[in-house]
Simulated assay, not measured.
Amino acid sequence: MPSPRATASALIDLFSEFNLSVKDLVALSGSHSIGNGRCFSIVFRLYNQSGTGRPDPVMEPKFREKLDKLCPIGGDGNVTGDLDSTPHVFDNQYFKDLVSGRGFLNSDQTLYSSNGTTREYVQQFSTDQEAFFKAFVEGMVKMGDLQSGRPGEIRRNCRIINSPPVEILMKS
């Protein structure tokens, strides 16, 4: 799992290690169209972006005000916020939010704010939901084909590998 502080270039490098393209990276990041993130993952963006002691300058001001209330300095880092403005619907709103400077995680917002090749795909997917859906399916198929030497798993907590199942022996 990439760090929520990751930059677009670091994400591109990470995905390329698995032979996943920039388009795959952006499309698969669209999985953040659903769900929540913890304040712990964004307080640096709100109060000390890149060690400046200031907030991330690309963050839309009203969105930042909302996040300041949700995640105040010294607040509970486990409080969660929506990853996009339609957190219960898998759609292209995530990309529209990035274009508007309302990405929750730095690793998400950097896909648009970096002005690189990731930005082109964010713009495309923000206006063409079908193109996003098609690219997402293609990226998921590629990820499913990756060979790690281990069977895949659906994690109970996305940050932690599931514990191995416990074998129960029955006495006879």
Rank of each mutant, 00 (worst) to 15 (best):
P2W: 08
P2C: 09
A6N: 10
S9V: 11
L11R: 01
D13L: 13
D13G: 13
L14N: 11
F15V: 10
F15H: 04
S16M: 10
E17N: 15
F18P: 00
L20F: 05
V26G: 00
I34C: 08
G35N: 06
I42D: 03
R45E: 09
N48V: 10
S50W: 14
G51W: 02
G51I: 13
T52M: 05
G53F: 07
R54C: 10
P55H: 02
P55I: 00
M59E: 02
E60K: 10
E60P: 01
F63Q: 08
K69L: 14
C71Y: 01
I73C: 08
I73Y: 11
I73H: 11
G77V: 12
T80I: 12
D82S: 15
L83A: 06
H88I: 12
Q93G: 06
V99S: 08
R102N: 04
F104A: 06
N106D: 10
S107C: 13
Q109W: 02
L111S: 00
L111C: 05
N115A: 14
Y121W: 07
V122P: 00
Q123A: 13
S126R: 03
A131S: 12
F132T: 04
A135Q: 01
F136P: 01
F136Q: 10
V141M: 09
V141A: 06
D145N: 14
G149S: 08
